[in-house]
Design a protein around this nucleic acid. Sequence first.
DNA 1: TCTCTAGGCTCAGATTTACTATGCCTAGCT
DNA 2: AGCTAGGCATAGTAAATCTGAGCCTAGAGA
Lengths: 295, 295
Amino acid sequence: MIMSVLPPRPKGPPITSLRAFEAAARLGGFTRAADELCVTPGAVAQQVKALEAWCGVDLFERHAQGVRLSRVGVEVLPSLSAAFDAMGEAVSVLRRATAPGRVHISALPAVAQLWLSPRLPAIRAALADVEISVTALEAPPNLAREPFDLSVFYGEGDGRLIARDEIFPVCAPEVARQLQSIEDLANVPCLADAVWTQDWETWLSGCATQVPLPAPVRGPVYSLYALAVEEAVNGAGVLIGHSALVARHLESGALVAPFSRRVTLPRGLVLGVRGGEMSPPLTALVNLLISESRL
Amino acid sequence: MIMSVLPPRPKGPPITSLRAFEAAARLGGFTRAADELCVTPGAVAQQVKALEAWCGVDLFERHAQGVRLSRVGVEVLPSLSAAFDAMGEAVSVLRRATAPGRVHISALPAVAQLWLSPRLPAIRAALADVEISVTALEAPPNLAREPFDLSVFYGEGDGRLIARDEIFPVCAPEVARQLQSIEDLANVPCLADAVWTQDWETWLSGCATQVPLPAPVRGPVYSLYALAVEEAVNGAGVLIGHSALVARHLESGALVAPFSRRVTLPRGLVLGVRGGEMSPPLTALVNLLISESRL
DNA sequence: TCTCTAGGCTCAGATTTACTATGCCTAGCT
DNA sequence: AGCTAGGCATAGTAAATCTGAGCCTAGAGA
């Protein structure tokens, strides 16, 4: 038995630290990085500090209102990002190799329920051998890093525009009968989504007639847009409809648009596709989804 | 306060698992991977298993005498290796950016002490602003992954040959007086290094005269070659000298070579240099080391 | 000027992850 | 038959990572 008493090998920095730093640097803040990594900002701060301790240099300049990359940080970021992109790509290759017929879609909860879900049966029928799973997320994932193949979110760029986002009030037919003019809105509950609270404002601004609705619209607020839609269908009030999300209900007549005025938002429903090689099932699915868009 | 009760985001595989798999796949065995990663083979086995569980597919075929990559494993390995190479490169960039004048050399303990160490004072004098650190390792590190800039080990390829490896007996002058012929070796202790035990055999084989030395040479065995050299200098016996490692002592006369027969091994002292961009100090150091080699 | 808010820091404790140690098993050698 | 190399499984342990709470600073708004 040979006892080799050698000093501990110098080790590279923990990968976790590198990941935290990369995310913080790329997104420009610990809080944003924490969001992407699904941890608390404190955890990111600790990891970054650990990395700074490892290399003995500050990677960020701390200001009270946020952090800015230091000179060294700027130098180092590109190669690190490249490395993590390569890692994401490798994981993607692994997923493709182990489950070629599996496609994982991420979408805004409302989009998943009101836009994607109604289309899935037809898609599943057309692509019988593809296993489609859907995860609802509040914010679009980083497709280069996280294990999703597609994303469907509202946004302005970074993908293929599937539908414009037009907004206009919608309600159940019996509620519509009470609404002759825009001023009548003051007499019915105005439903609102928790994150799309300014929809009413946006639609009303530029209206010919000044309407007395207070900016934060009075009326129930829902954390899930799909829930608000459901309530509107049940006659609970008037909701600002997003064209892509209420189209089905307009067709079926469950909802009607009492006013003709429509406002097109600068953003739209955007389909994001994972970079790198695409499996045949994924290609087929993307084509199906795109063919839905009539722009 | 919005309570968003969303299902847990699907997460990618733990990076540690990927690293363990990559090493095991590249080196063709859990034990070898464990060596490179400085953990026990059991740890590697666990990580690999975790990864296989994550993707639901076996990455290795287990045979009792080792493992072989499965089809999927073969498909996945290249992109993973590329990712970890990119990660190593990123760490290297980080080290260069944070400590431009620092060079880290790894070498076999014997090489570090007997070849490198005597040269360092002159090098430090010539390159005053370079901070050189040396780590002794039993096996050459993976320069693309571990935080070393240079390696000096005995080997056959993978780098620049600095010196051939000639072996021949050496001893203190007073011991040499007892050695007229090769047969006299039977009458003195034959020192040996723990890992280079077959040096004697190699040197003796092909000798004109058959010598009665048993294959595992009788005599003290040292776990550190430098220690054996020290003992030889002190007159404890005859040691098989490696040209690069005993040159200084031969010059000073502390050791002499009692026999003229020399055997050149197929391997040699090889200088490994980290890939990627080289800092000016590193370039200068490499040039100095190479200029030592008179081949 | 005061307060509020966003973003970051730190520390202690909890939790999760990773590793070691041990014993067992198999196939190929000698 | 006995030995060795390499892998597997399990339990306990060590280390890494995360959370949670309270504190701090600078800018924005009243």
